[in-house]
Design a protein around this nucleic acid. Structure first.
Lengths: 222, 222
DNA sequence: TGCGATCCTAAACCTCGGTATGATCCGCGC
DNA sequence: GCGCGGATCATACCGAGGTTTAGGATCGCA
């Protein structure tokens, strides 16, 4: 824990970025101009590989991808990103795409799938939607990661007690369940509230919901 | 009511139904045979209108739709159903569809979009996924409607108190907030727990979450 | 070996949650 | 009018939640 408490109230409201991957320089140029004309930051790449070299900034962003990339199909690249746990909204472009490709892309979560030539406005609309989607998912991810950070400071006993508390059991029931004195459960409970930063029991319950803590914690025997 | 209480923990696990709308009788015939061959119930229709006459059973189901329907495009019909609050998973078929159509259909929530001719297995896979999706959404809807039914038995005062309780306020704070004696809040609180069938406060909090009860409940006039 | 973290427990004490009993007031419908 | 249910409040009582203080036990690590 360093003293870095910079501007921690910030949501991801900073300047968004649009990434473009296309092997055709004229397409890159055109899109770059289009987005800059509406005041959007743009980064262009000639291949998926180049894009991966670049460190992704922590701001709302989206990726515009030709379905037909030089060394790797756009769909495969989409799968790669998902496997690498990089969840940036993707907008596909295609000159000669077909319907099965489209379906696969959309099922995999693509924001849009535009056929060339497309109207500038259609692309801008898609980008707006994609950025908005990313902004929301980043905000959610931020909340969740903060929550996990707090949860990580709990001891295993405290985690166990937290699961039982948020499932609605009384202290004495919890004590019986795991073979403790009621007073001990109360102590743990107090620690949990403080460590998690919960101001009330309903607060803690909602945190547990987000963390996915339910009866599905540990099934030993029986 | 027959004596069929075999699986009486009933979720919506009853026999699913596949609905097919196509103006081509040979297609209806072929699909009907396909689905029956794997033991699925099928209902076929020559038009969207006919389909709407039919009363939809309360079992997991899905709808297979040609994008090019006689009087109404498949996409428009999809929009119609959504507007009428009928949320049945849709699988589109098309002989001459294009990518924009596909994108629109998928964005609107279609399960799949198959190009004719398609492999039987692809259709069956799509139907399986669609049925599964519908089963899940029906289970959720059932839970939610039961919850709303309980919530409907609350008086407006009780609803107001419930919102404050689940937001984490103490009885005395709630009392101060709405100008009551603490004891009165306790009474309401007891009624709420009984009427909602909540066995604990965490229980009630989760119900409130599902019902969408937060600080954004009642902002009438001051 | 000593330090610290985790875990467990006890006694005392206070607040909060919740119920029961009993009561008043109001509005609605028969 | 009368009954009924909702809303309000008071008193009293009890159980549950929660903190403080104070201790004992175990384990890993410097």
């Amino acid at each position: 824990m360093t003293g870095r408490r910079a501007s921690s109230t910030l949501i991801s409201a900073e300047e968004p970025v649009v990434f473009v991957i296309d092997d055709d320089a004229s397409v890159r140029e055109a899109l770059s101009n289009l987005f800059r004309s509406v005041g959007l930051r743009v980064e262009v790449f000639g291949s998926a590989h180049e894009f991966l070299q670049c460190k992704l900034p922590n701001v709302p962003s989206c990726l515009i991808l030709d379905i037909r990339l030089p060394r790797l199909s756009g769909l495969d690249f989409q799968a790669e990103l998902a496997k690498a746990d990089i969840h940036i909204p993707i907008i596909f472009m295609t000159g000669h795409g077909d319907i099965p490709m489209t379906v696969r892309a959309m099922k995999a979560g693509a924001v849009d799938f535009l056929t060339k030539p497309f109207r500038d406005q259609d692309m801008l609309d898609a980008v707006t939607a994609a950025i908005e989607r990313d902004r929301n998912s980043r905000d959610e991810a931020k909340i969740l990661s903060d929550l996990h950070a707090h949860f990580a400071t709990l001891t295993s006993r405290e985690r166990q007690v937290m699961a039982l508390v948020t499932s609605g059991l009384m202290n004495k029931q919890i004590a019986a369940e795991i073979g403790l004195a009621e007073i001990t459960v109360k102590i743990h409970r107090g620690h949990i509230m403080r460590k998690m930063g919960a101001k009330s029991l309903p607060d803690l319950v909602r945190m547990a919901e987000l963390l996915g803590i339910g009866p599905a914690s540990d099934r030993s025997q029986t």
